[in-house]
């Protein structure tokens, strides 16, 4: 009997999963605290103790997210695109398109029935296309990240952001606040702008139903609603969207065990 471990080191949090087959047995999340190697080591310890397993019980590990070398255990460096594809496939075998909204970037992945990557596109390396944009705006509005979604859903009149740049978006948000625009309308406007960016990314790789969301963006109901409206469809939403890549990494560990 073999267990496999997947670790996803993100810019904000590090996620880990121990899987048996393609099912998650144990999962765990900690803050990355700007020390990615330490986060990877820590999450491994945390996972083992939670699962009451020994290091020797883990047949192999895959690490994705931040690029790491020289960890204390043998591992496969895995592409987050591949991990995300496998993770979504294990949860929703019917998904053919994945919208993966992470802190630093957003990617659209087309997957086949086996969870293999058919094609993918990553947003430009600028904050406007990622969860970072939401963090910036939340900071301007002085609200917590968790409150973004519920507040945005209350909006009756989302503002139209004319800019596609996060820096200008920030100043646009500031001037909107000064004009007295309700916070929920600003947030819903940001959600809509992100949803439009996502729709454009999908234009570049093509679309096939059904469509799933993953990554931290999948926790944000405001964003989900905006994407569903923009694309005119219902998204497949994992219970723990932020863990999808870690789960996928555990599956990739099985595939790439030397």
């Amino acid at each position: 009997m073999s267990y496999f471990m997947g670790i996803d080191v993100g810019s904000r949090t590090t996620k880990g999963v121990i899987a048996y087959g393609s099912r998650a047995k144990t999962f765990h999340t900690i803050f990355s605290s700007n020390n990615y190697r330490e986060a990877a080591e820590k999450i491994r310890e945390g996972l083992l103790s939670r699962a009451r397993l020994q290091a020797a019980d883990i047949a192999y590990t895959a690490v994705t997210g931040q690029q790491l070398d020289n960890l204390s255990f043998p591992f496969h460096k895995a592409s987050d695109t591949r991990c995300c594809a496998r993770g979504v496939n294990s949860l929703f075998p019917e998904a053919r398109t994945v919208i993966d909204v992470q802190g630093q970037s957003t990617q659209i992945i087309r997957v086949d029935e086996k969870g293999k990557v058919v094609n993918f596109v990553v947003s430009e390396r600028c904050a406007a296309g990622s969860g970072r944009f939401l963090e910036i705006i939340a900071n301007v509005l002085r609200i917590n990240l968790e409150d973004i979604g519920p507040l945005s859903l209350k909006s009756q009149n989302p503002v139209a952001f004319t800019t596609s740049c996060a820096v200008f978006g920030e100043s646009e948000a500031i001037s909107r606040v000064a004009e007295g625009t309700p916070k929920e309308d600003i947030l819903a406007g940001v959600h809509r702008a992100l949803a439009q960016k996502i729709s454009t990314l999908i234009d570049r790789v093509g679309f096939e139903a059904r469509c799933a969301i993953s990554g931290g963006g999948g926790l944000d109901m405001g964003l989900i609603k905006a994407i569903e409206q923009e694309l005119g469809l219902e998204l497949l939403i994992p219970q723990k969207p932020e863990l999808v890549s870690a789960l996928g990494a555990a599956i990739v560990a099985q595939e790439s065990k030397p």
Binding site: F161, T162, S164, Q196, K197, T200, L201, D203, R204
Partner: peptide, 10 residues
């Protein structure tokens, strides 16, 4: 200049 650019991004 009042309309956000979306489609051309592709």
């Amino acid at each position: 200049m009042r309309e956000p650019i979306t489609k051309a991004d592709a």
